[in-house]
């Protein structure tokens, strides 16, 4: 039997398509179906938009959405801002690039959960920072504002996702033809202008990639706010978990999930568009 070119493509894609279909598309479809029903005891009730109305009408959910986005936005900003100089150093100044990249990613060889617990130990009431500061007589009593708040969530997430920012930014910086920088210098630009007019715009794909790579999953992060966020650091994923596990209101949990996904998608799209526009404006 002859298989056409597109046919071959589908054959090659088949395993992936199968997994994606069963593990991603089907559950997502199921989630959509759930979100359009109401809960009738333990069974599903009839078709309705009530869940979405409940989500959108509730001030509590709205502030939770905003907080999730604010926290992961901040995480994205902090991570990218800290990762950029590191990636820049490795791409432009480091002698043993590969060794540096390995060194930078070593912390990510341990489990995510372990790293979150590590931060718990560092930030805790009788944790590393507090006991060190007490010993040095910098403070009289332990600070309680380090842990169980949005600050702790931002610090923990920013550290957890650092590698996902460094690597794409590094790749985009590494790709920049060094003669372009020489040409910019030749045409009258000092180091700072050269960076702003050539290096930054050309590394923008890496920055956008890193930002999306961090913003999208951290908005829905559940583990970190659960472990270090306290009540003020709760994010939308924690509430979704409660709806599915404790309360047992799957339709409401499904609606919250889908609204959250839609919001992340819209914000990511707006971000990419505005970043591109900003790069165009910088000539």
């Amino acid at each position: 039997m002859a298989i056409g070119n597109s046919g071959k493509g589908y054959v090659l894609l088949a395993p992936t398509l199968l997994v994606m279909g069963l593990a991603l598309a089907a559950p997502l479809l199921l989630l959509a179906v759930y979100s359009l029903h109401d809960q009738n005891g333990l069974a599903l009730g009839g078709w309705t938009l009530a869940q979405y109305r409940a989500v959108l009408a509730s001030a509590g959910y709205r502030s939770l959405f905003l907080r999730s986005i604010a926290i992961s936005g901040l995480v994205t900003l902090v991570t990218v801002a800290l990762a950029y100089p590191m990636a820049y150093f490795v791409a432009f100044h480091a002698r043993r690039k590969f060794a540096w990249l390995i060194a930078l990613t070593i912390p990510f060889w341990t489990s995510y959960l372990l790293r979150v617990f590590a931060w718990k130990i560092i930030l805790g009431f009788d944790g590393v920072i507090n006991s060190a500061a007490l010993r040095l007589h910098l403070i009289d009593q332990p600070l309680s504002l380090l842990l169980y708040n949005p600050f702790a969530v931002v610090v923990t997430l920013a550290h957890a996702w650092a590698a996902f920012a460094i690597l794409p930014i590094y790749v985009s910086l590494e790709k920049i033809d060094r003669s372009l920088l020489e040409a910019a210098g030749d045409l009258g630009d000092g180091a700072l202008r050269r960076f702003l007019r050539i290096t930054l715009p050309l590394s923008l794909p890496g920055v956008i990639g890193a930002a999306i790579l961090i913003f999208v999953p951290t908005t829905g992060d559940y583990v970190t706010p659960e472990l270090v966020g306290g009540t003020k650091g709760t994010m939308i994923a924690n509430v979704i978990e409660v709806q599915f596990n404790s309360v047992g209101n799957w339709p409401l949990g499904a609606a919250l999930s889908l609204v959250s996904m839609a919001m992340v998608a819209v914000i990511a799209a707006l971000f990419v568009a505005s970043a591109r526009a900003a790069a165009k404006a910088a000539r």
Binding site: E182, A183, G185, L187, G188
Partner: peptide, 19 residues
């Protein structure tokens, strides 16, 4: 430094700014 010299250069690979 190059940016303060009264010279300009046509580079071997032309170094056209791709963006």
């Amino acid at each position: 430094p190059p940016h303060r010299r009264p010279t300009n250069m046509v580079f071997q690979n032309y170094a056209i700014f791709p963006h």
